[in-house]
């Protein structure tokens, strides 16, 4: 597979580390005889691009422009198209983030390319680029194979590939933008975005709260349990959206994917979008009042009960 193109992602000047996993996947796809080109668009890209220079990367392009400060589709799309213009690729990989999924789909639509969002892996099948996703309640792997003559755009979920170690030899070049940054119909008028302060991925023990905590008071109980265990606090999208917890603590499809030794799910129903983010935890304890909550299917220990009753008991046992 000769040419693979990676569109890396910058969030407020910080390189999104899924970009590196994309490079890992791209290298595997390209093989020994292929090339990997990486593009990083965004304001401040030049200063953040160094880690993209990984072994096996032929070219690192940065598109550092004030007009790319906040993400809107059209200017980003124009930049990626400009970069691809002289560097045709058989496969284009992006992180499966809110930006990557939007940009990837837009790119595929613009190029008439095959598109696979939220892929769990990429590779080749009968010589054609392919990507797959596990779905249908984790019962089916669907493999999509790009049709003859069509490139594949795939966005990769956390864990789809290993990030490469070490640094490479490519030079970091600025992409000449000229007319490429088109005028945009959309405009980000306001942002309300927090800085990421916790890294759940490295946590050994995570105590996670779901809507079942019922409110900030219930959450306090979870926080005490986390403290007693020396654990990080995590949560579901429901809890984050309710404003009870900051967004960097969200676990799941649109949050972090975690693999701690112990994961304690409190008042979490276990929607698949949450479970995909914690399925690989070594031990899972789930506390839920609903005996049929899907979370129990991913749990090693199943406690059917009210967390307001159960957690104080655990705290007592932990001597807290």
């Amino acid at each position: 597979m000769p040419r693979v193109f990676v569109v890396a992602e910058l969030n407020d000047g910080v390189l999104n580390d899924l970009s590196l996993q994309c490079i890992g996947a791209a290298r595997a796809m390209a093989g020994a005889d292929g090339t990997v080109v990486v593009l990083l668009p965004g304001t401040g890209a030049a200063a953040a691009a160094a880690p993209l220079n990984a072994p096996g990367v032929a070219e690192v392009l940065v598109a550092d422009d004030d007009r790319l400060a906040a993400y809107t589709t059209e200017p980003y799309l124009a930049v990626v198209k400009a970069a691809l213009a002289g560097r045709p690729a058989e496969a284009i990989l992006l992180p499966a983030t809110t930006i990557g999924n939007d940009l990837g789909a837009a790119l595929a639509a613009a190029l008439g390319a095959a598109c696979v969002t939220d892929a769990d892996g990429v590779g080749a099948e009968e010589g054609r680029p392919a990507a797959w996703r596990v779905g249908f309640d984790r019962k089916v792997r669907t493999v999509w194979v790009a049709a003859e003559g069509r490139p594949l755009v795939a966005t990769l979920r956390d864990g789809a590939a290993e990030a490469p170690a070490g640094s490479g030899t490519a030079a970091v070049e600025a992409l000449s933008l000229d007319g490429a940054v088109s005028q945009t119909p959309c405009r980000v008028v306001r942002r309300d975005v927090a800085k990421k302060t916790v890294n759940l991925r490295d946590a050994k023990v995570i105590v996670a709260a779901g809507a079942g905590v019922g409110g900030p008071e219930g959450l306090e109980l979870i926080r005490r349990l986390a403290t007693a265990l020396g654990a990080e606090l995590g949560g579901t999208r429901a809890v984050v959206d309710a404003g009870w917890m900051s967004a960097d603590r969200q676990i799941g499809q649109t949050g972090a994917t975690v693999r701690p030794d112990l994961y304690i799910a409190c008042g979490i129903s276990g929607a698949i979008q949450h479970r995909v983010g914690m399925l690989d935890s070594r031990t899972v304890i789930a506390i839920n009042t609903d005996p049929n909550a899907p979370i129990f299917r991913s749990a090693h220990y199943r406690i059917v009960g009210d967390l307001k009753v159960v957690i104080p008991k655990l705290l007592k046992l932990l001597g807290a």
Binding site: A108, A113, R138, K139, V140, R141, V145, A147, I303
Partner: peptide, 26 residues
Amino acid sequence: PLTLRVRREAVPPRAIETATVDPENE
């Protein structure tokens, strides 16, 4: 025009052994 073909395969279930713990049982 179709841009891709689809193939599906079964994923073996992950065997998790779940133990039920009675919250009243210290």
